[in-house]
């Protein structure tokens, strides 16, 4: 099996598709980092104008004030528990900033790296994975080399498994480079730090409303790790689906077209989501897993992190099953 995977990796590298994907990452991260930097500068300037403070020096004074204010609110007997826990989390974050002399308005490489993946997980990351996955089997079909591959003394399922495992390795490589490139490029703009800053997570959905009672702070590095783990899961799911389509369709262009249009369609299908129940079982609308971490999701009855992960897992398993059954049974006529 190892030699088969080695073969596939060599082919992938020689085809330069992986290099192409990494090049896209470099360009996009650079643009994104520059944009973030630009926005941060403007916010600072606006703050200075409006409030008469220079953010760089006087943010501590502002934070102190906010802190006292929040502590007073926490002591109030009329507050309910939910509000209190969310207040406690914000107090903790502000206290950390004061203790470590971090301006909360400043960006950091850690924040950027996480944010980049949160923004990429539902469209950009899947597109990169599709570029790699859609070609793995259909590329061999359209060039006719599949014939050479399947007349060896190796059963078909092993050939396909080696391709699938190679895809999973490539997904790790893509995410690894997305992480490293984000850190390096954003580090040039914002400095490399920020890994220990607390980030709030643990949001829940109770009776159709965002429940903040279980919210707690985790260090940034742990939060980033969670985001990238979810991103890998999404990559595997999207990779499996594209892999299946590339086996069924046999043409690289057609399979990229099909899965890309599905993904893009998924972005506006979400608008009908609350009315039209069946859409929530589509894989495209369940890709924003990181929103459940950050609490930035639109509360929809019945949609939780567990629900989304189960739906995605179902799609991945079904895709793999269809891929293997079809690939083993099909007649090669190219």
């Amino acid at each position: 099996m190892f030699n088969l995977i080695e073969n596939e990796v060599l082919k992938m590298i020689s085809k330069k598709r992986l290099m192409f994907v990494l090049a896209i990452l470099v360009v996009l991260i650079s643009i994104f980092a520059y944009g973030q930097n630009h926005t941060a500068e403007r916010t600072k300037a606006q703050l200075a104008q409006r409030m008469g403070i220079t953010a760089t020096d006087d943010w501590r004074r502002l934070a102190d004030q906010q802190l006292i204010d929040m502590k007073n609110r926490l002591d109030s007997p009329y507050r309910d528990e939910k509000d209190k826990s969310s207040l406690r989390v914000r107090i903790e974050q502000l206290q950390y900033n004061l203790d470590n002399n971090i301006n909360p308005l400043e960006q950091s490489a850690a924040k950027f790296t996480t944010k980049f993946m949160e923004q990429s997980i539902f469209l950009f990351l899947p597109l990169l994975i599709i570029m790699l996955a859609a070609d793995m089997v259909s590329g061999e079909s359209s060039s006719g080399t599949i014939k050479l591959l399947l007349v060896r003394n190796v059963p078909r399922w092993r050939i396909l498994l080696s391709k699938y495992l190679t895809l999973m390795i490539l997904e790790i490589i893509v995410l690894f480079f997305a992480f490293v490139l984000s850190v390096i490029i954003s580090g040039l703009f914002f400095g490399l730090g920020g890994w220990l800053a607390p980030v709030a997570t643990g949001f829940k959905l109770v009776a159709g409303k965002l429940d903040t009672s279980a919210v707690l702070n985790v260090p940034q590095w742990r939060y980033t790790l969670m985001v990238y783990s979810l991103a890998y899961f999404v990559a595997v799911v999207v990779g499996s689906i594209s892999f299946m389509i590339s086996i069924l369709v046999k043409s690289t262009a057609a399979s990229i077209g099909i899965i890309m249009s599905t993904l893009v369609a998924g972005n506006f299908i979400s608008y009908f989501l609350s009315d039209w129940k069946i859409t929530r079982y589509m894989f495209m609308v369940n890709l924003r897993l990181t929103d459940y971490l950050s609490g930035s999701f639109q509360p929809i009855e019945g949609m939780t992190m567990l629900f989304s992960i189960t739906v995605l897992l179902g799609w991945a398993v079904a895709s793999i099953l269809v891929s293997f059954v079809y690939f083993i049974k099909q007649d090669i006529l190219v």
Partner: peptide, 14 residues
């Protein structure tokens, strides 16, 4: 068995 089926399709990028 060793074989060539129709045309000798090889990996052109290798």
């Amino acid at each position: 068995v060793g074989c060539i089926i129709e045309s000798p399709d090889m990996y052109k990028y290798l």
